[in-house]
Simulated scan of single mutants.
Amino acid sequence: MVTDTIEDTRVFFSIKHISWSEYGFHTPILLQDANGPCPLIALVNTLLLKYEFDIQQQQESVKLAGINDLRKHLLRLETKIYLDDLLSRLGDLIVNIAETSPDCEGDAAKLLDLLPQLHTGLSVNPNLITGKFPKDDLSTVLFTSLFELNFEHGWVLDEDVTVIRELEFFDKIQDFLLTNEEEVQTKEWLDANKTQVTNAGLEKLSDSLDFNNFAIYFRNNHFNTLFKSGSGDLFLLMTDSSLKSSKNIIWQSLTTVSGKDDIFYTGDFFPILDEDLQEIENQRGEVDDSDMILVKQLQEEEDQRMAEEMHKKYQNIHTKATKKLEAQDKKSELISKSKKQQTKDSDKKKKSSCIIT
């Protein structure tokens, strides 16, 4: 008897288990294929690595406590995690944060709807003066306000360009150039810095991060995990899926604008020698094209369903919490009235006692 095999076309992310730092942390991370910017990968990887470090330093955040459940889940899965599974678990994290932090409730509801978009991209508006992003952007709310992560870029003005200094934000600068085509100086600076990083930006980036700290790093419409080591050096986590089988190539230094002098490092931050770099070229040539195509098949209807379910879940929890608070307030009000009545009755008895005497 012949049976048809139904191919599983769901979107998934490959998992790589890395050992890193002088403490020998063992952490599962998500790898990136040829599927666009994917801030989702940067968010998850940064949370996982930061969690390991915070636990060692006994600095566990209440907001990040739930990340250990995701870490254990990835360790059990070993090789890959499906997008719907990942979004569901991140949704649970956001709901838990909303329950413990009332100030985040409004943001949490918006972000639950935003989650599916994290697979295909995320709109950002870098400030070319400060190296930051607008505080009210959903990207900033998600990374910084909700998950307490640094969100940085290195595309910072390094010379006197009046328009950029006055407008600051990239979106405003773009809008200005649409109606002011004669503005040559601004265009020349943008063209000269298409890599979206400058020496001034690297300096500001280093100054803004504490030692042994993590950030989500934005550059050229890509998001990555950045780490500032105890020595002050900056490293980017290598998440290219072509390096999945490589146990040695974990980090890449971030020291130059051009990237010419940036080198690869092992998990415990030892530089990889030139003779070992052939491993990178060999592995890059072994990427399975079919996997790339599979990852690109993002199912928008499935994502929308997931978003609606997570939003509904949040609304249910929020409604229950509200009813609970209302019930507690009503109970407190009844107790207060009862105490007042008891006080009145006691006063009456005292007055009556005085009259009899």
Rank of each mutant, 00 (worst) to 15 (best):
K351F: 06
D160N: 13
D233Q: 11
G121H: 05
F223K: 01
R305V: 00
N248P: 09
F169R: 09
E183N: 11
I263Y: 03
G232P: 10
N316Q: 11
V141G: 07
S245F: 14
D107R: 00
L236Q: 09
Q341C: 13
V62Y: 15
A108N: 04
T79H: 14
G154W: 03
T186W: 10
G36M: 06
Q342C: 12
Y51W: 15
R305W: 02
D171R: 09
F53N: 11
Q32P: 00
A327G: 03
F170D: 10
I250T: 04
R10F: 03
P37D: 05
F12E: 07
I250L: 13
E152A: 02
Q252F: 05
L114G: 13
G201W: 02
F270A: 06
F227P: 02
E52D: 15
Y314G: 02
L138F: 05
Q174L: 15
T357R: 01
M238G: 13
I94L: 12
L234K: 02
I164Q: 03
E22Y: 14
E166L: 11
D175T: 08
Q59H: 12
L157C: 10
V62E: 15
D268W: 11
D33A: 12
Q56E: 15
H73D: 14
A200I: 08
S21M: 08
M1H: 13
G106D: 10
F169P: 05
I173S: 04
H73G: 08
F211C: 09
L254K: 05
K110I: 08
N220C: 15
L47H: 09
G267C: 12
K349S: 12
K204W: 01
G24K: 04
N221I: 05
L74W: 01
Q59V: 14
T140L: 08
V95F: 08
H222R: 04
M1F: 15
T357K: 04
A65M: 14
H17I: 12
E78K: 12
E159A: 04
L298C: 00
C104E: 13
K313N: 04
I15F: 03
K16V: 10
C104T: 04
I263P: 03
F151M: 06
E166G: 09
E182Y: 06
N199Q: 10
E300K: 00
I272K: 04
D33M: 04
L77W: 05
G201T: 04
S253T: 15
L86M: 07
L334C: 08
K324A: 15
Y82S: 03
D8G: 15
F211I: 09
W20G: 05
L118Q: 05
N127T: 10
K194T: 14
E60K: 10
D289M: 09
K350D: 11
K72I: 07
F270Q: 07
V163S: 01
L138I: 01
K16I: 07
Q278A: 15
A307W: 00
G24E: 05
A321C: 13
S353W: 01
T357G: 01
G24D: 05
S21R: 03
Q57C: 14
Q185H: 08
V184Y: 14
F269N: 04
I249F: 11
S346W: 06
S139N: 05
T100L: 12
F151Y: 04
Q58T: 08
